[in-house]
């Protein structure tokens, strides 16, 4: 009972926090500057790890598909089809979002938590700034706008990585892979995956801000809220992944 009411309490608190975040900004210019700072640190800063993970993820999924389809009944271009669909539907939006939850979520939560425990947020409040909105809204906007771009890059690189490593290892020929990835392609899958990554980006930025914003105490609590943020974001991403798939694809 207490756990359920605790969850409901947190959801309600999150809702009120969101209302504060999306209240009318005092000064747009301040937010704009903050937005580009966040884009630089959250999105462009994640470009390297996203690219690296995507290329190897694509390579591994291609090799695994080629290994799994070792049957004379299955044409080898099915490797391309399977890799493309797995990457576009699930690996790029969901796995990369989970990675970003770890990287971006923990950084936002610990940043906000530290600002809270060092009373910087209180200082902003005293200056008459809506601290929740000022600190969180640029992050949410940066994430929700930029993460779909990251996911697009990720999809591109993963399919490219699958092609490079698939052909280099000899698991699949270049023609078959390319025929596979262009075979019966549905554009909606890409839109679906971008919608997913938009929602995941919102979850990552808002939930981690929420946990960071309401940190109480010192360094240990900052670590705790950062951990909590990452755990809850991961759970929420998986739950929303199911819900969105069910809503959009089925």
């Amino acid at each position: 009972m207490s756990t359920i009411s605790n969850y409901l309490y947190n959801i309600g608190k999150y809702g009120i926090f969101m209302k504060r975040v999306f209240s009318k900004p005092e000064k747009w210019g301040m937010y704009k500057r903050q937005f580009f700072i966040e884009v630089d640190s959250l999105a462009i800063g994640s470009l390297g790890i996203v690219a690296f993970i995507s290329i190897f993820m694509g390579a591994v999924i291609t090799l695994q598909s080629a290994f799994g389809f070792e049957s004379p009944w299955i044409p080898l271009y099915a490797v391309g089809v399977a890799s493309r669909d797995t990457i576009i539907l699930e690996l790029s939006p969901t796995i990369i979002s989970l990675i970003l939850a770890g990287k971006v979520g923990s950084s936002i939560a610990s940043e906000m938590g530290t600002m809270r425990v060092t009373e910087q947020l209180d200082a902003l409040e005293i200056m008459g700034v809506n601290s929740a909105a000022y600190m969180t809204l640029p992050k949410i906007l940066a994430c929700t706008i930029m993460f779909p771009f990251l996911i697009t890059i990720s999809m591109f690189l993963a399919i490219l990585g699958g092609w490079i490593f698939g052909v280099l290892s000899g698991a699949v020929s270049s023609y078959e892979y390319i025929y596979g990835i262009t075979h019966n392609f549905k554009v909606f899958n890409v839109y679906y995956s971008l919608i997913k990554s938009f929602i995941f980006a919102f979850l990552i930025s808002s939930v981690s801000s929420f946990y960071g914003y309401y940190t109480k105490g010192g360094a240990v609590e900052v670590a705790q809220s950062s951990t909590k943020a990452v755990v809850y974001i991961s759970v929420l991403i998986l739950v929303f992944n199911y819900i969105l798939t069910q809503l959009l694809l089925v």
């Binding site: 580009f36 884009v39 999105a43 470009l47 930029m146 771009f149 697009t152 591109f156 262009t182 554009v187």
Partner: peptide
């Protein structure tokens, strides 16, 4: 580079990449 420029470059490149990739996949 300014942060704005980097962001712009990222967005433009990604859109170009996305359009090319989508068209490629569509044949």
């Amino acid at each position: 580079f300014s942060k704005e420029l980097k962001t712009g470059v990222l967005i433009v490149c990604t859109i170009a990449l996305g359009i090319y990739g989508l068209n490629y996949l569509k044949g």
